[in-house]
Design a protein around this nucleic acid. Structure first.
Length: 217
DNA sequence: CCAGACGTTGTT
DNA sequence: GTCTGG
DNA sequence: CCAGACGTTGTT
DNA sequence: GTCTGG
């Protein structure tokens, strides 16, 4: 799955990486080394061919919800069933977006401890995501798609976020695309450059933001 | 037509 | 918002 | 995702 | 056990 991630680059680097024209992020401070669910996260979206960078609450809040309590269950959306779920089937067609990241964390229970591992490629990553505007709360929220882990990632955990290649950003973000058009993008990462390192259990506490969150131990 | 229900993943 | 039931 | 908090009445 | 906060 993807229940914690990070973003190292600053806003201008994200704008460059995703060809963003409109930036509505305020108080974004880089790096964000330990981002938990329910945080505001940057998302890239596209409207009439113009890409925007904006903030969204991580954890999808359906249009009909009147509070944010449901969000913690919807931090991820399974790619395999996304087209069938009541909360997801509209946004997967109408409001796809990208959550930029440098890497993400997964945990594995080793004896009595919850051991975190950090996953990255060294490049800026694009998590496939969907967003929803909730009118009662005036809140934009998002959910990160997950899929089966690639062989190397599966050593730690059997699910992973869907990563988009730069050549597919435009297709993914195009609001005119149908589900059939984009479902081929929802595959486990096929690259051979995924690095997985064991990191300090200090990462477990979401308050901890030290630089060793991304250093091997 | 209106009323009323409807969220989800991953873990063990 | 969207679907189902009445 | 993980960590950490979470108790209540009645009486003075 | 369950909910909230980060």
């Amino acid at each position: 799955m993807c229940g914690r991630f990070n973003i190292v680059p600053d806003a201008s680097a994200l704008i460059d990486a995703f060809d963003v024209l409109i930036n509505t992020l305020d108080d974004y401070q880089a790096p964000q080394l330990n981002i938990p669910p329910t945080s505001p996260v940057p998302i890239v979206s596209s409207k009439e061919g113009v890409r925007s960078l904006s903030a969204a609450h991580w954890g999808l809040i359906p249009p009909w919800a009147t509070d944010t309590k449901s969000a913690f269950r919807m931090i991820n959306a399974r790619a395999e069933t996304i087209a069938e779920k009541a909360s997801f089937r509209v946004p997967i067609v109408k409001s796809r977006c990208i959550v930029p990241a440098s890497g993400w964390y997964e945990w594995r229970k080793e004896g009595d401890i919850k051991q975190p591992y950090y996953f990255q490629t060294g490049e800026i990553l694009a998590f496939a995501a969907i967003s929803v505007w909730n009118k009662p709360l005036s809140l934009l929220s998002c959910s990160i798609l997950t899929t089966q882990a690639s062989a190397s990632a599966a050593q730690v955990h059997h699910r992973m976020p869907v990563l988009l290649g730069a050549q597919n950003y435009a297709q993914w973000l195009d609001p005119a695309g149908t589900y059939t058009d984009i479902k081929g993008l929802l595959k486990p990462y096929a690259g051979n450059d995924l690095s997985i390192i064991k990191v300090t259990t200090r990462v477990n506490n979401a308050r901890y933001k030290g630089h060793d969150c991304i250093e091997a131990i």
